[in-house]
Write a protein that binds this DNA or RNA. Structure first.
Lengths: 200, 200
DNA sequence: GTCTGTTGTAATCATTCGATTACAACGGAA
DNA sequence: TTCCGTTGTAATCGAATGATTACAACAGAC
């Protein structure tokens, strides 16, 4: 048209920024609640282009889930590698991985989009992918992290608690509600400030 | 029309059955993913009547959330009353309330609709109600159940874990995946059979 | 029997949203 | 320059959906 294109990117670059934008939008609104147009605006492109680069809204959501799961496991594996290097007590791994999980809150959208996927168990395609992803995380905790059943369960429980607190957006009440603050401290520990300014 | 009405109920009775149906539908599909028509069919009435008896889809969802929270707290308070009657160690309350929480899985929709509410923190009205509900549960654990911060956090973590497992519908993999079974046993304990046939 | 308030639905409306189509602009190769 | 594949959008379509309206059927009061 009138103005020349000064923002041309390769399709792969576009797909990456769409994935980042979609993780935010799906994470906050959920699969059904989010629109491809919201994703498009967040990525700075038009709605039809989002659909064309991923085929469908469902395919985009599956890609978001896969990327979130991949990032999560990559962060965990990196933490294990470091932990193995410095010889620390085996028990320490529980804390180290927990810290990494909280750190991921900075990566807006990882926890939230994963949880939004888990909550879609009734969807035929998405539900199956979400279940498989959940099992993959469980398998990681049991086999690669070496947690026994009880420890893996406790770890997962702590993780689900933090994820739900982020999803319900409890950080917005941190300053005004002492109980909310108490709960957030209990869930995040000393890393609460990090979570709080990631949420704002 | 041709067939005479043989199913007339009072408006309050209708509201109750709509609430039960809506807890199921919203619980499985989520707020945005569920339609008022699906709720209507599940309740055996027409879609416009659902809207008229509750004003709007949003108001219906808020009513579902409130009812689920009320049922949850009522079950907990009943358990505490029984526990206080028989003199049991204070530590035992953690197990007793946990059992009640798992028992609620029989009441299809309580866990799921609550979780679907928590996941809607970005919605202005629903998000605020969900946060308030979450704090109310936390307050209960701290004040009425008398849990210290760590115990309350662990309890809530166990609860969120179970809720997410139900939401992702992991029970459908129990028979075919040993890992899924292991995870379900870890989360439900000996009450797993109860959860499994509630899910089918 | 008639009148009135309650229960309930069929029809329909306006909006939203994912997807499709047609087309434009740019870039590199020949 | 000409051509063609890639990147991108405007316009639009059709289906789904929450809500509204108009109306029907029944129950109880009188």
């Amino acid at each position: 048209m009138v103005q020349h294109d000064d923002g041309r990117r390769t399709a792969d670059e576009r797909r990456e920024s769409i994935l980042r934008a979609a993780a935010q939008v799906f994470g906050r609104r959920g699969y059904a609640g989010a629109t491809t147009d919201q994703v498009a605006r967040a990525a700075g492109i038009s709605q039809p282009y989002v659909v064309r680069l991923f085929g469908s809204k469902e395919a985009l959501f599956l890609a978001v889930l896969d990327q979130a799961k991949t990032e999560l496991l990559a962060a965990f594996r990196a933490a294990i590698a470091e932990d193995r290097a410095s010889d620390s007590p085996a028990e320490h791994l529980f804390v180290v991985l927990g810290d990494r999980y909280v750190d991921l809150a900075r990566e807006r959208g990882v926890h939230l989009s994963l949880l939004q996927g888990f909550v879609q168990g009734a969807e035929p395609v998405i539900g199956a992918a979400a279940r498989e992803g959940y099992l993959e995380i469980w398998r990681f905790l049991r086999e690669e992290a070496g947690f026994d059943v009880d420890r893996a369960r406790d770890f997962l429980g702590r993780g689900m608690l933090l994820s739900v607190l982020l999803a319900v957006d409890l950080p917005v009440l941190d300053a005004t509600s002492p109980e909310a603050h108490e709960l957030l401290v209990a869930a995040c520990g000393p890393k609460l400030p990090l979570v709080l300014d990631a949420a704002s």
